[in-house]
Simulated assay, not measured.
Amino acid sequence: MRLVRIIGKHILKTHPERNITAAIYSYWANQIIELFKKEQRAVYLHTKLVESTRGITNRLVGKLPDQIHNLKRKYRESGIITKRPKLDPPTTPTSSRCSSPSSPASPSSPLSRFDDIDSEAEKECSESLEWLKNSSHPWESVEQKWEETSSVRLSHLKNQSIDEYFKEYPALQKPTGYILLLQDFKTCYPANFNGLFENFPSYKKEIFKVASNRPNKDKFIKILLSLENVSEEVENLAAFLLIPSLLSVCTIRLKGNAKKVWRPSKSEVRDGFILHVRSDADIEAHIIKRKTKLAEFNLTLQPLIIVVGESLKEVQSYIVVVNTTKYFFNHIVEAVDSFLKIIFTLNAKFSEESKSAWLVIQQGFYKIKTNFDKTPTTTSTLLTELGI
């Protein structure tokens, strides 16, 4: 507890009059568990879905946010902090060429809105871009410069592979790197940013209802239905896993070879959606297995969600894998939310075998439809059944 108090005082000394961002909390939580290997990150920081006047929101809780809250209260009482904290104004003027365009996101691609970035914008952002290519600390500076350079970076990304992009900006390979990608998603889709948190709770019961009404339920669906009401976390995980189980399997026709098709099994569809492994030691073997399978059909491994735990009731962690980078989460809703935003921000693709399930989440919960969506009938049917 003394360590948390010291960290809290340091954070407030650096940022006495501002709200503390999720990235700052994440940075210090990661430092603690890196130093004390047996400590659990969730004890110091995790998110919790709470209902407020603004709807369902994702709130940071744990020892670090609690400590900051208590210290701020004491500081205000003693006059050290003279007013309640307010959000900082934008670090760059909204008219800056470096900042994001103010026009709404294109329905075709999140990156298409950055087609017309001129050389003047490149010049204005060159110093910040160079810093990001060579630095990933302090994190507050990373976040600031990342926001400042969003339009130029995203215009470059259209011509880069994910691997090249991650190598160019080392901060993305940090445990908190996903926050930068979420920030870019918010730039492209500000109105849809909280879509999952706002809509999933109300449709979760409908998912279980539709599943329970299916006449021919397979063994896996029955297992998932038994997890309803076990706990909020287990129920959320089961609800997500039910989505691909409620869809018909789609035959995948390969580009360049019309005669060669892949009709994945139900288990392959589930694994392409959310892969469950029993331990960390199993992760690499399963990834290699998936790469080998996909290579048979000239497909490449896309970003993937992995659930680690002895059973669906005993999950240790949720991981979003992007190439060789792994982002860790404490809750399935966080993992699913981050995954979809990462896919859109990086201009990546959903795995072919599970695309129909992800379109349910994209169109149903985030209310995003793009010109690239080829929505199968099974997806449209399930959305209708859910009342979306």
Rank of each mutant, 00 (worst) to 15 (best):
I68N: 07
I68A: 05
I68Y: 03
L71C: 06
L71P: 05
K72V: 06
R73Y: 10
K74M: 07
K74D: 14
K74L: 13
Y75G: 01
G79K: 05
G79F: 05
G79W: 07
I80M: 11
I80Q: 13
I80G: 00
I81M: 14
T82D: 13
T82K: 15
T82P: 01
K83D: 14
K83E: 15
R84F: 11
K86G: 06
K86L: 13
K86P: 00
L87H: 14
L87K: 11
L87D: 14
L87Y: 15
L87V: 08
D88N: 11
P89D: 08
P90I: 01
T91K: 10
T91A: 15
T92F: 11
T92C: 03
P93I: 09
T94M: 13
T94L: 14
T94P: 10
S95R: 02
S96K: 08
S96N: 11
S96L: 04
C98K: 08
C98T: 12
S99E: 06
S100A: 15
S100C: 10
P101Q: 01
S102I: 13
S102G: 15
S102R: 14
S102K: 15
S103F: 09
A105K: 04
A105P: 09
A105V: 04
S106V: 02
S108G: 10
S108K: 05
S109L: 04
S109P: 00
P110N: 04
P110E: 01
L111H: 01
S112Q: 08
S112C: 07
R113D: 01
R113A: 08
F114Q: 00
D115M: 10
D115V: 05
D116A: 07
D116H: 13
D116Y: 11
D116R: 09
D116W: 04
I117H: 01
I117P: 02
D118A: 03
D118V: 03
S119Q: 12
A121H: 01
A121E: 04
K123F: 08
K123W: 00
K123M: 04
